[in-house]
């Protein structure tokens, strides 16, 4: 009950509230009781490996898929119960940028304006304005099927923007673009963030940390972490962590802990293709482990390929969170 009261009080502040969303496909659980809120004006990034449930979450928020249980509230309207009002506040750019190939850019954006209920009087002006914002004026009379991938992305984004929705949802907005286009699209998204709430999904970490104010990390249908990119990085930085990449065929690494003094934790981060393994070793405060680590590993017959003092990045946070066993969902 307490939770209910709290939600009602804060409803005003949140543009999107996702409450206990579960989506099951047969016995497979794609999303498992996901909860989060997004405030007005935020740029939020969904981060997760492929198949983590990013697109499913977005599809549920936009009302394209009905969740098995739970509800989504967009700007105070339940997406399942008042779809029309809720959908009016959402501009969605789906994955794979679906467009009508035989329409020109301008026709497509006009069509999107029409099905989003933009008033006839304002239509022409709004379409023109959006074409300008997204840098499409030069190609407005070209057929969308003849455009390059980068422009298609822009057209799809223009389609999402038309009708002045409060929330813009972009599914993988930079996939398949060349570096120059990526920078352009990112700048465009940042620009959008000034007047809209933006949700985007990505599996590129640097992108999310550049653009977003907040990151929601999803893995295997569960939310692993919700925080700002800076906090997430800090979370992982432990003063005395060392990354070592070793060749360790007999798997002795985990037993090393007993042989080393002042070690708090040894964790496997990744297994590389060349059969080396990357570990993170955390020591007690103010202890430099590197020397003793080198000597001990040498004694045990473990070959060090690389040893590096931890300077944690979002990437590390991501890998750590994702590789965490089941406990992860409690965040």
């Amino acid at each position: 009950m307490v939770i209910c009261v709290k939600n009602k009080k804060e409803e005003e502040k949140f543009v999107i509230q996702v409450q206990n969303i579960t989506k099951k496909y047969g016995s497979f659980t794609a999303l498992d009781a996901i909860n989060f809120e997004i405030k007005e004006g935020e740029i939020v990034g969904f981060l997760g490996p492929n198949g983590a449930g990013k697109s499913t979450t977005m599809n549920i928020i936009t009302g394209f898929i009905e969740p098995t249980s739970g509800k989504v509230i967009v700007d105070g309207n339940d997406v399942s119960k008042k779809p029309k009002k809720a959908k009016q506040q959402i501009g969605y750019m789906p994955e794979g940028v679906p467009l009508y190939g035989d329409l020109t850019v301008k026709e497509f954006v006009t069509y999107m304006a029409e099905i989003k209920g933009v008033k006839r009087k304002e239509k022409k002006e709004k379409v023109e304005k959006i074409l300008e914002e997204t840098g499409l004026l030069d190609v407005k009379n070209k057929l969308t099927k003849n455009l390059s991938r980068g422009y298609k992305q822009r057209v799809s984004m223009a389609g999402a923007l038309v009708g002045d929705p409060k929330v813009i949802i972009l599914d993988e907005p930079t996939v398949g673009l060349d570096p120059k286009q990526v920078t352009e699209i990112r700048a465009l998204i940042k620009d959008l963030g000034k007047n809209h709430t933006v949700i985007l999904s990505s599996h590129i970490l640097s992108e999310v940390s550049q653009i977003c104010n907040r990151v929601i990390i999803i893995n295997k249908g569960k939310i692993v972490a919700v925080d700002t990119p800076e906090h997430l990085e800090q979370k992982v930085i432990k003063d005395n962590s060392i990354y070592v990449t070793v060749e360790d065929p007999e798997n002795k690494m985990l037993k090393i802990k007993e042989k080393l003094e002042k070690v708090e934790d040894i964790k496997l981060i990744s297994q590389n293709e060349d059969k080396t393994k990357k570990y993170i070793i955390t020591a007690e405060k103010d202890v430099d482990l590197r020397k003793s680590l080198f000597e001990t590993l040498a004694k045990e017959g473990i070959t060090i390929f690389e040893m590096k003092k931890a300077d944690a990045t979002l990437e590390d946070a991501f890998m750590q969170l994702i590789n965490k066993p089941e406990e992860g969902g409690k965040e």
Partner: peptide, 11 residues
């Protein structure tokens, strides 16, 4: 083509 998504997510 996936354009179904555009229709189903518009009001």
């Amino acid at each position: 083509a996936g354009t179904e998504q555009l229709i189903l997510t518009s009001p």
